[in-house]
Nucleic acid binder design. Structure first.
Lengths: 286, 286
DNA sequence: AAAAGCGATAGATTCTGCTCATGTCAACCA
DNA sequence: TGGTTGACATGAGCAGAATCTATCGCTTTT
């Protein structure tokens, strides 16, 4: 049973004669006749009564059964083509792995723009703390560092700054050695934080870490409360604040590199491609 | 877009490689490769990522869209074939035009048997008083007389009998002339009743019709009540009754002929065909 | 570096599906 | 009543599609 045969069945049922259906479909009467014959062979019985003479054909009861189902099939086929077109235009779902800084600074603009372009887009964000991410199950993953076995683009360099209460240090750079023995608030030692602490160690600087939390806002709050200093990526410092100051470190730490990654050699959906584009644009403006 | 291509897509997605899908479908790997290529051309994009080497292929996002819709289509196609099979086995709907005697005497047995054979059969009865029936809209029509422009079979001859209160006439035949001047209850003069009354007139018999009703049971009730005599087809006298007696008339009226008709040159559904068969069998037992 | 697994491709062949021309049948008309 | 008309069926021929066989090229694994 072939969709084309069902379309022909439908046309003949609507037009009443093979010839008119042929005109509508751009075939000859002979072709329609043969298609109907093929369909009848497939279903094992006549779908039209042919009265003979100049009378139109009429559906048999079997023909009505086949036509009813056939219309359903044709509608589904049309819906399929439609869905493909919409997919190519950017509809669909995209699952994105992210983390705090990106969620707060980069993604809002990207999501807003995507939803403006494609109101039917289905964006899902997953913010899971992982040390070594893989893009399994996700379409796109933000990560602060390279991702193994994945295609990726570097979104931006996010420099580390020292955060302190305003007035604690004069404006301008602060030597890294100033951290030696200082009370500090920090992230748990995963992801890029581990690298940062290795830099301290290599420089012979041993800060006194008095509190760790994965919540950047929590880190900032504790700095503001006077619990200690913090070294954090500038993006994590997403709120301007009168009572805090940010300082470059000397020597500067290598910046945190933020990558957007996806599974290698996989075709991306147009929606995901657009997300990458917009992410690059957004990051370039920072 | 072809159903066969979608079936191939499904098989490849399930098996992971073109070759295994080919085995399952009875094709060669080459054929599957070409079918997938054709499908990809139809939807305008790749549906599989081919990693190369001994790795299995993977659906692209587009492929997932197409496959989701494709499975739906394939399921509908299977459902269609199933519906055709069930139709050929006797499921479906049949609309039957009937009238009182047939409804009460013949159809119960037929309906019971059909519903035993095909619990999903959808039998609809239409009891409309018409003088000249046509089978438009109906699959089968019972009628007491020939139906013009229709195929038909005679179901049975239904002899007319005189119905009287028991004891009013001695057992056995009653001369037609006994009706002259007699009070009678009768059907409205349509259908076969008109023919009956012409027979009276031709025989010079002029009964006094005191009540007409289309309801056979009403006729009988009024006879029982002593309102008069009645001449009615034996089938219409479907209740045995101690206080009534039935008599042949002399000369006998030509019996009412009951036909089962359907539109000429139309293919009947297996269900309708079965109804015709069962009707003949049932009538033969009367 | 060789072997194995897998998809793509070229060429040959078979099938399918279409068109054109013609046949056949029933209703209509003169 | 016999020709005409309108409609479907059928046969021949051809073009294109689908399939198979064989082979190529790529990637991973050994």
């Amino acid at each position: 049973m072939d969709l084309r045969h069902l379309a022909t069945l439908d046309a003949v049922a609507a037009e009443g004669t093979f010839g008119k259906a042929a005109d509508r479909l751009g075939y000859t009467q002979s072709a329609v006749s043969q298609q109907v014959a093929a369909l009848e062979k497939a279903v094992g019985g006549a779908v039209f009564d042919r009265p003979g003479g100049p009378k139109p054909v009429r559906l048999t009861p079997l023909g009505e059964v086949v036509l009813a189902h056939g219309r359903e099939l044709l509608a589904r086929a049309a819906a399929t083509e439609d869905a493909v077109e919409r997919f190519k235009a950017g509809e669909g779902r995209v699952d994105i792995g992210t983390f705090q800084s990106v969620t707060n600074v980069i993604l809002p603009a990207v999501v807003r723009q995507i939803l403006t372009e494609h109101p039917a887009a289905d964006i899902r964000l997953f913010e899971e703390e992982t040390d070594e991410p893989s893009a399994d199950g996700l379409d796109l993953v933000f990560f602060d560092g390279r991702v193994k076995d994945a295609e990726q683009v570097k979104i931006l360099d996010d420099p580390y700054v020292l955060v302190a209460r305003r007035g604690q240090f004069p404006e301008g750079p602060v030597p890294l050695t100033a951290l030696h023995g200082a009370a500090m608030v920090a992230q748990p030692p995963i992801c890029d934080q581990a690298r940062v602490e290795r830099v301290y160690a290599d420089a012979g600087v041993a800060p006194l870490i008095v509190f760790r939390t994965a919540d950047n806002r929590g880190v900032i709050s504790m700095v503001r409360a006077g619990m200690g200093l913090a070294v954090m990526p500038r993006l994590a410092l997403d709120v301007a604040s009168d009572d805090l100051s940010a300082h470059e470190l000397q020597p500067a730490l290598a910046p945190r590199e933020i990558y957007l990654a996806w599974q290698a050699n996989r075709t991306l959906s147009p929606l995901a491609t657009r997300v990458i584009e917009l992410t690059k644009q957004t990051a370039a403006q920072l």
